[in-house]
Design a protein around this nucleic acid. Structure first.
Lengths: 224, 224
DNA sequence: TTGCTAAGCGGACAGCAGTCCGCTAATTTC
DNA sequence: GAAATTAGCGGACTGCTGTCCGCTTAGCAA
């Protein structure tokens, strides 16, 4: 218990922690479902040591990918600065899913972490969650999404993402899912969804599924 | 392996199977996360026997609640007979979530079963899946939902349902989730939801520019 | 009834998650 | 530097999932 970084760790503890993370990174990128036991063994630490640092498998994985996840989370602000709130939201979701899918094991972790009921609000998700909150807030402000919809609701709606098999044609499935979710979000807009013909609040619709040039923004690749 | 009901079971096998199901029902209603071992023990069968009948925990649970799940699944037809396709879909989804929530342990099983990647297409889900297909087909026909959206997509979209804590205020959360999903579905409609201002349909935008009307179903998703 | 055969049994077993606790050694105090 | 104090260590242990395989016995044929 107590994985929270409270007081400064003792030197050997810090060394162990780092070693575990290194080994975990190596092992997990190759065998996403390697056992905790094997990781502990390869890091030359006892089970007890492992669990003191990472209370659960998901805690480990989220920590391993923390830096990179944070990158994605932080890109929300940049997206909001250069795009309309709805487009920003959609692109961010694309990035999130893309990242989760390509980083083998992470999707799994997200899934499990979300699966462990209640832990959604738990460890490491915080950065993602707050990113979602920021994006939603901007959309609330712009009137593109109903204020009735909170971060929890959105996270729940995209829960399906973590179930997609990263080895299959995840791109198409993820796109269809996000299309659907985003359509739903925009349809909830206080000003109502767009109408092409009379052009009323059509702006809301802008975030089309095609998303051609995502080019510029760095895709937060490769951490560490 | 081979839980598929192929040839008629030998009498003792049948007896064991029934006994396991009985015990499982009792135990699971009281302790939704009772261990397989304990169920096997209380049913006076060996582990091997248990696993021969039910290859996984989820298989057991889905079998335990099979009759009731089937009831829900079958209600789809009745709903379709008395309501518009979109209303039928929505009401059915409400029923499904309501049932899953109130039947402690089932939500859990659904979650796990869906969580175990790939097994979505697996055991027991068949009745639910085909109900979804029926409902979607009706909506495709009526033009209320884009043909691009298949049963898999919908099941993915409502994956969040199984994550909701049945002990919390699941009703509100489920409602918001389903509102969102259904809005998204209807927004994808080829004829689109009518525009209040000018009455024109918002048109085909939702389906996405690429891959226009592919026509038929069989999304040929999910390889492997 | 008796014997044959394979379907089915069940417990031993391997491997894992997660806990516990006596021991070790890093750090602090003098 | 030595003693005292704990933070931290690590492996034994519990209980679980899922597999395997030698034994039992249901079902059948004569």
């Amino acid at each position: 218990m107590r994985p929270v970084k409270s007081e400064p760790l003792r030197s050997d503890a810090l060394r162990n922690r780092r070693r575990i993370l290194e080994v975990a990174w190596d092992v997990l990128t190759e065998h996403p479902d390697a056992s905790i036991t094997s990781i502990a063994r390869r890091a030359h630490v006892g089970q007890g040591t492992f669990y003191r640092h990472f209370p659960s498998r998901e805690a480990l994985i989220l920590e391993v990918y923390r830096y990179e996840v944070q990158q994605v989370a932080e890109s929300a602000d940049r997206l909001l600065a250069t795009r309309s709130p709805d487009r920003a939201l959609r692109e961010w979701l694309d990035r999130l899913s893309c990242y989760a899918m390509t980083k083998a094991g992470l999707a799994e972790a997200m899934r499990k972490a979300t699966c462990a009921r209640g832990s959604l609000a738990g460890v490491g998700h915080d950065s993602v969650r707050s990113a979602v909150e920021t994006l939603l807030a901007a959309n609330h402000e712009a009137g593109t999404v109903s204020r009735d919809i909170g971060a929890d609701d959105l996270l729940l709606a995209i829960a399906g993402l973590w179930q997609i098999d990263p080895d299959g044609d995840w791109e198409a499935r993820a796109r269809r899912l996000l299309d659907l979710v985003v359509e739903g979000l925009l349809a909830s807009a206080p000003r109502g969804p767009a109408c092409e013909t009379c052009g009323e609040p059509a702006a809301a619709r802008a975030a089309g599924p095609d998303r051609g040039a995502t080019g510029d923004e760095d895709h937060a690749t490769n951490g560490r």
